[in-house]
Design a protein around this nucleic acid. Structure first.
Lengths: 237, 237
DNA sequence: TCAAAAGTGTTCGCTATACACCCATGG
DNA sequence: CCATGGGTGTATAGCGAACACTTTTGA
């Protein structure tokens, strides 16, 4: 169960009662314009060597869990100050076969375009949500909980801000909502709703590659959103 | 900062790197028919001796955080198998002046009537939400976060089940929703909405003490609720 | 010239909201 | 007999859901 004595190592941090190790793990969500994706890293060591897992690591004693998660995220993706959110702490006694480890799990919403070493890196890769392989440890469970949490948050916050590029088409926005909520919307109703809400600002540029017809680009009107939210409004679908 | 050497104690649990202590704390919500309340205990020892705080304690190495929280809850209130839910883990490095302690926070929804040693116990007392004094540690912050989490959950789950007695009046149900969401509803619209949803089962008994007119008692029709939920329905206000 | 994608309405039914009336009870 | 609280109904505005027409462009 718990290894009290580790042979031939320096064991200089001693306590009267046993303490678990504490890690942070980060489910990094991205959006490619069509599908929701997560960034996984392949484990190079046992246990679960070769399996994919979420990036994460031990929390330092002089940082909060959030600071730790942001540090790990920076190390993995190069992103500074990404949008992250704590959603659950996983504590099953046997979740790590080596010793007692609890993990404080965060999810991050990032723009895939801004993440270095994307699709082709050997040890870090984006996976579409429906193509995620079996993961290390209890990370399957962590992913399910992260999806749930994301689905909840979207009812209260305009998450699109963080996952989409500055400028995007209405169709991309709709794809995003459909991917997160796993539903289908009527194209025209979605458009009408967005227009009524007045949260989108239409750009002059209409460029859109590789389609039949050119599409307008939009950007979020964050000020307008904050104003609506203040008045007790909630973004709902 | 971190005490590596505690004098004249047995320090038999040793690690290569420092480990934080891990506790669970539980925000226990109750409802008296009018106001939302929380159960606090008064600290008998330093630090923060005399201050009120949420019940909680160290997580054992052979139990999950949830089991730990349930155990603490049972010890404090005598309640078995209460409805609890993890909502956040608090990790600020200095949140405990003695040593590094992180706490996994839960809230519990209980029926005040079923909790022993209620309003008059010396070291445990119910406080209305707007009468909570300044708390120990970072528990003020924990309370705010718990309220937020409760307010979120009420949009997706019929929390009334857990906080109200088996039988209740419509007015009590309305008071509960108003207390949690901090809004006011029109009495007649609330009644109509409940009627349309068909989630309430009217009892024959109409007893209601100390009022001008007798009021009907209702109970939740849990089966009906589950059925609606299955069809993608969400309880909203 | 045809298929596919995008911009823009219109209609209808339901629900949220505002509001009114009657009944019972205790002072 | 009136003030208070509780049960029940009705009218209206606005939103969600279903649905249609036009335009552009590449094959």
């Amino acid at each position: 169960m718990d290894k009290i004595n580790k042979t031939d190592e320096e064991l200089k941090y001693c306590y009267k009662y046993p303490h678990p190790s504490v890690t942070t793990d980060c489910v990094i969500f991205g959006f490619d314009g069509t599908k929701l994706k997560v960034l996984l890293v392949q484990r190079g060591i046992e246990p679960y060597k070769g399996r994919w897992a979420f990036p994460g690591g031990f929390m330092n004693m002089d940082e909060s869990a959030e600071e730790g998660a942001l540090r790990e995220l920076q190390e993995e993706t190069g992103l500074e100050g990404a949008y992250i959110r704590q959603f659950h702490t996983f504590t099953a006694p046997q979740r790590d076969p080596r010793e007692r480890v609890i993990t404080i799990a965060y999810y991050a919403l990032v723009r895939m375009q801004e993440v270095k070493g994307s699709d082709d890196a050997a040890d870090a890769r984006w996976f579409a949500l429906d193509e995620v392989p079996q993961l290390a440890f209890d990370h399957d469970q962590i992913l399910r909980k992260a999806e749930q949490a994301l689905r909840q948050l979207i009812h209260f916050e305009p998450i699109g801000f963080e996952l989409l590029p500055e400028e995007f088409t209405i169709k991309e926005l709709q794809n995003l909502y459909e991917a997160i909520l796993d539903v289908r919307f009527d194209r025209r109703n979605f458009y009408n709703k967005m227009k009524r809400l007045e949260m989108l600002e239409q750009m002059d540029e209409t460029v859109n590659p590789s389609q039949k017809k050119e599409a307008f680009l939009f950007r979020f009107n964050r000020a307008k959103y904050e104003e609506l939210k203040q008045k007790g409004f909630r973004l709902e679908f």
